[in-house]
Design a protein around this nucleic acid. Structure first.
Lengths: 120, 120
DNA sequence: TGGGATACCCACTAAAAAGTAAGTATGGAT
DNA sequence: ATCCATACTTACTTTTTAGTGGGTATCCCA
């Protein structure tokens, strides 16, 4: 099998948290374990397919775990693994930088809104 | 014009540093100003088109500046703006987390290599 | 006169990511 | 029997992102 090669560490990080949805999902899970329907409500624009697909990829990367409760109707929840928690600081900083970026752009006259701040 | 709305700060951050190339370019520029050809050498897989395109987008977001020297043959270099430097901590953490991720995966038997570490 | 060096730009194509809309399974409640 | 809720799948389409291969401009130098 061919050796996977990275030039620089950030490439590997972006494989894990990059894309449109992963970092958003992780920022939510950073705060608490959440069930599927809860994540759907927290991220209204995401489709069910994308949510599930991204969660599977995060599971495969050992960042989140899936916990199935033996119930009907089904109940499943997702939380960060210990390893996933090692991203917590980065995720928080990404949120904060974005909040500042939005404030800045608004001050410069851009019509822009942020619904939820990451207050921790 | 319609108001741009974000749910959470990280969305705005990812608009700036997301995608396959931007974070890599920024990690390099974090260390020093670099000319086009230097960036091409530092990021061997990138095409000229992508490099220029990403640099233009980073300029538009006020993260990098383009400096043209009046010379023939042309000489241009790029560096982080003051605002771009506000990403420096995040970028460093992204590099470091990725380096650890790669180490971890190698320990678990994956065939994987990292060429350049971010030693600062 | 024509090649070299640098930093582009443009048109076209290919591949990857994301979106849409529908369907499946379970078992309890009505 | 039928319906409900939850958590998925699957097939298909659209959009976005990235890659390829070419071309332009400048001025110096042989």
């Amino acid at each position: 099998m061919p050796t996977k090669t990275y030039q620089i560490g950030v490439e590997a990080t972006m494989e894990v948290i990059g894309g449109k949805w992963k970092s958003i999902i992780l920022c939510h899970l950073r705060q608490k374990a959440m069930r599927t329907s809860e994540l759907e409500r927290a991220i209204p624009q995401i489709s069910q397919k994308m949510l599930v697909q991204q969660l599977r990829e995060l599971e495969a990367a050992n960042i989140v775990t899936r916990h199935v409760y033996q119930q009907v109707p089904p109940r499943v929840d997702y939380s960060l693994t210990d390893y996933g928690h090692s991203l917590s600081g980065v995720l928080h900083d990404l949120c904060v930088w974005g909040e500042e970026n939005i404030d800045r752009r608004r001050e410069q006259g851009e019509a822009i809104t942020l619904l939820h701040r990451d207050d921790l």
